[in-house]
Computed example of a mutant assay.
Amino acid sequence: MIVEAALACVPAPGRAGKGCEDHGALGPSTVVVVDGVGLPAGGCRHGVAWYARQLASATLAAVAGGDVPLADGLASAIAAVAACHRDCDLAHPDTPSAAVGVLRIGADSVEMLSLADVAIVVDLGADGLHAVVDRHAEARAGLVGVGLAGHRIGTAAHAAAVAGLLAERETACNRPGGFWVAAADPDVAHRATAATFPSAGLRRAVVCSDGASWPVDSGEWTWPDAFARLASRGPGGLVAAVRELEAADPDGLRHPRVKRHDDATVAYLRVLP
């Protein structure tokens, strides 16, 4: 099976020079997308962009061989990156963490793993589209949408609503009954959402951070819509289409969201004839 892969990792407008807090890594028939989160004063001197790059590279190295289960590979990568900055305050609630998506295409199977809200979708031809997204983190279309509805981005009311959501996130992050993200504890990798399908009918696949998948989450697009854009415009074109939606709704009234723009990463894979 010959797989063609393309990747776009685009920082949010206004973040030029500050480093993209998403990162994607490609290997032969394997892709990893990491969506980093955290705050500058969060106890880590390296920052979120550094953490996202390190975790993406370490995860790809751990799973690219094909013989390591994806959850085990992600767990070892989380542990390895934690070891790289043990001198930082890894227990701080705002220290860098990340959502992670892994797709691996083998001779007989397609394996997918989503921790937090990175979306992975495969087109299996006659067997249709299959999506794997860990929905425990943030509940984007529910908690975020309801909590921010009616508040214009940039207003004091919106800032107060975001602060409330962040406080709620802090109480639920990496705790039973809440949701799980990659940070310093490798065991969270085994709480990810995973699926495996036969690879015989595989035609194409996409892995994307929520900065690129939110139009589907919100109901503005369907996954077939997204694949049509990928086929005609590629990953960069898909992100450009997302930016067009954001520009058309700058106040976040049609699509309530935490910020006007987010970093966006899209990996698009096609099986060649």
Rank of each mutant, 00 (worst) to 15 (best):
L124D: 13
P235H: 06
L70K: 01
A228S: 13
P11E: 07
C20Y: 08
D263R: 03
G236I: 10
L124I: 09
R233P: 04
V206Q: 00
P250H: 05
P96G: 08
C84G: 14
D127A: 15
R175G: 11
V188F: 09
P198H: 08
A98R: 11
H23P: 01
L269W: 10
V118P: 01
A240S: 15
R191M: 11
G17S: 01
R15I: 08
A192P: 00
V133K: 05
A194K: 07
G43N: 10
R152D: 12
G128A: 03
R204N: 08
L148K: 13
A137K: 13
P69N: 12
A163L: 02
A159D: 06
L269S: 00
A184M: 04
A8M: 10
W214T: 03
D187S: 15
P11F: 07
V133L: 13
V146K: 15
T155H: 06
T265S: 00
W223Q: 05
A25I: 02
T95N: 11
H23V: 05
L166P: 11
L129Y: 00
K18Q: 14
A212Q: 01
V181A: 11
V33S: 06
C44V: 13
A5C: 04
G154A: 02
A61M: 08
G106S: 02
A77Q: 10
V206S: 08
S114C: 05
D94H: 09
Y51S: 02
A160M: 09
H255K: 09
G147C: 14
A119W: 04
A64P: 01
D35W: 05
A99L: 07
A231M: 07
V48W: 08
G201C: 00
V266M: 05
D262C: 08
T196R: 15
A126Q: 12
V181W: 05
I78Y: 09
A226P: 01
L238V: 11
A240C: 11
V207D: 03
V100Q: 09
V68K: 12
A131R: 14
R270N: 10
G142M: 12
G19R: 07
S218N: 12
E246Q: 08
A71R: 12
V207W: 00
W214K: 05
L113E: 00
S199D: 03
V271W: 10
P250E: 07
D22A: 01
G237N: 02
A159R: 00
V271Q: 12
W214A: 05
A159W: 07
G42D: 02
V216C: 14
P235D: 01
C173W: 08
L272D: 04
G154N: 04
